[in-house]
C-alpha cells in the first residue's frame, strides 16, 4: 500500500510497503523517540531499537515484542523526530502485522483488549460496561475485583450505562456489508 522501495527486501521491504512504514529507511537512530516516549522504560526494546531491529530483519523478535503494545499513541515521538518518522504509525503498523501473523505478545493484555474493543467497534458502537466486563472475563476476572471502587464511582454518577447504543437496522446492515467487503478485499491479497 505504501511505497515500494527498490533494494529493500524481506522484512524491511514488508514494513516499507505498509502505509506509515516507509519512514524507517531514513531513521538516523538518534533515540529522540525513545527519549520522548513516556513508556520507553517499560518496553522490552526501545522505540528506536525497534526500527534498528526491523532494518536488521529480526521479524519474529519485533512482532513478538511487548514494546509495540506499550505505545500510548500520544505522538510525542512523532512530533519530535528530526527525520519526520512517525514512530506512532509504525508501531500501529507493526501491531497489525503481529496480529495477522499470530505473533502478538502474550506478556501484555493490550492485544486482547484491542481485540475486544474492535469486536464492539465493528458492531457500530462501544458499550463501555460490556466492553470492560468482556475484557476482564477474557483475561483475568480477578483483576476486575480491585476495580470495584472505580466502577462504583462511575456507577453512582450514572456513568456506566447498561443500555447500549444501537444503530438503526438499515445502518447496521450497511456497516456490515462494508466490513464484509473489506474482509473480502483483504482476503484476495
Amino acid at each position: 500500500m505504501g511505497a515500494t522501495v527498490a533494494g529493500s527486501k524481506g522484512f524491511v521491504g514488508e514494513i516499507c510497503g505498509l502505509p506509515g512504514g516507509e519512514a524507517i529507511l531514513t531513521c538516523v537512530q538518534c533515540g529522540t523517540c525513545t527519549g520522548a516516549c513516556p513508556n520507553a522504560d517499560r518496553m522490552d526494546y526501545t522505540p528506536s531499537q525497534i526500527i534498528a531491529m526491523v532494518r536488521a530483519g529480526l521479524k519474529e523478535e519485533v512482532l513478538a515484542s511487548r514494546a509495540i503494545w506499550y505505545c500510548l499513541s500520544c505522538y510525542l515521538c512523532t512530533v519530535r523526530c528530526p527525520r519526520g518518522v512517525s514512530q506512532t504509525r509504525l508501531m500501529h503498523a507493526l501491531g497489525y502485522l503481529a496480529m495477522k501473523e499470530g505473533l502478538a505478545s502474550r506478556q501484555t493484555a493490550t492485544p486482547a483488549m484491542y481485540r475486544v474493543f474492535s469486536h464492539y467497534a465493528r458492531a457500530g458502537s462501544l458499550p463501555e460496561l460490556w466492553f470492560m466486563l468482556r475484557f476482564y472475563l477474557k483475561t483475568n476476572p480477578l483483576r476486575a475485583l480491585h476495580l470495584i471502587p472505580v466502577a462504583w464511582g462511575l456507577l453512582r454518577r450514572g456513568r456506566l450505562s447498561l443500555r447500549t447504543r444501537r444503530l438503526s437496522p438499515a445502518a447496521r446492515k450497511q456497516l456490515d456489508s462494508i466490513l464484509q467487503k473489506a474482509i473480502a478485499i483483504r482476503g484476495k491479497e
Binding site: Q29, C30, G31, T32, C33, T34, G35, A36, A40, T46, S48, Q49, R80, P82
Partner: peptide, 25 residues
C-alpha cells in the same frame, strides 16, 4: 540526541537541577 530538558525532579538527586532526558542508544 536529547529528547527533552525538564526541571521536574524525580527524587532528591534531581532536585534543583535541569534534567536532560536522552536515550543512550
Amino acid at each position: 540526541r536529547a529528547a527533552e530538558v525538564t526541571d521536574i525532579a524525580e527524587g532528591e538527586s534531581e532536585r534543583g537541577k535541569l534534567i536532560v532526558i536522552v536515550e543512550d542508544t
